[in-house]
Write a protein that binds this DNA or RNA. Structure first.
Lengths: 145, 145
DNA sequence: CCGTATCCATTCCGATACTG
DNA sequence: CAGTATCGGAATGGATACGG
């Protein structure tokens, strides 16, 4: 199961992995960014067992990453990203762009993200480190939020 | 074990998760960015079993994310990030910053990344989506690399 | 110190059957 | 359709012992 308590409570990376550090979870979130909302849509897209999917959706709702939207008479609910869930966009795009750069052969096709307005591919995310800025070890710099 | 073949060969996110979609792997990479290189350093930092750590290091070397640097007479090797591994910086920082924003209470302390040159905290990564740009579903836009 | 080999407990997952 | 309940097999991870 996804949730597990890590010894490393101080580290934001470990905390994040506590909540979304699971393949199924991250793929569900990917699909949610692609506009999927139905239980059956996720199931078809992922080929995941129903009980596992139900478990992951429940956890994601519990953790405030998805919200469950019930649609009146219909028993079929929608699962939509909360603001906290949408905030994972950077992570998903980071995973995607790394894969585009490093997990495909030169002649292999793959999908790319297109911006609706311009029709252009989404440019690569690039943190400060590109210009040689090195990062000081995390343990040495603990601050208040 | 980390490696598993996914049905979704086309999706860069799934491909990336094939290679690094494992808690231990991502925490090892985090530690590598923090400058750890020794087997024992990783083990102490993570509290991971030796056989598991050995397995993950082997996989990471196999996948070209770490490289093993043997130091002459000494049996103790260093594990260092390859360029492909360093390219995961965006992902690690994305996970970290999401955690900073979403996985801590307001009064909880946590570590932050500091840029060596300026002494300033690393600014938040922010992809284009901030200004309302929506993303078109991945399946509809398959292109050559 | 850096692993490898083995063993055991636990967890995880998928298939199936069942319910509203 | 959207789940819940159960079950067996597979995989995983931790501990231990051992070797280079």
């Amino acid at each position: 199961m996804t949730p597990r308590t890590w010894t490393d409570r101080q580290c934001p990376v470990a905390r994040t992995l506590d909540l979304v550090g699971d393949r199924w979870v991250l793929l569900i979130i990917r699909d949610a960014f692609d506009g999927l909302t139905r239980f059956s849509e996720f199931q078809r897209s992922l080929g995941i067992a129903k009980n596992i999917l139900a478990d992951r959706l429940r956890l994601l709702v519990e953790n405030g990453i998805l919200r469950r939207v019930d649609t009146g008479a219909d028993s079929r609910a929608h699962y939509r990203l909360t603001p906290r869930g949408e905030d994972l966009f950077t992570v998903i795009v980071g995973l995607r762009q790394w894969g585009e750069r490093n997990a495909f052969e030169a002649d292999e096709e793959h999908s790319v993200l297109i911006l609706e307005q311009t029709g252009e591919p989404l440019p690569n995310i690039d943190p400060v480190r590109a210009d040689g800025g090195r990062i000081v070890a995390r343990d040495t710099h603990v601050q208040k939020v």
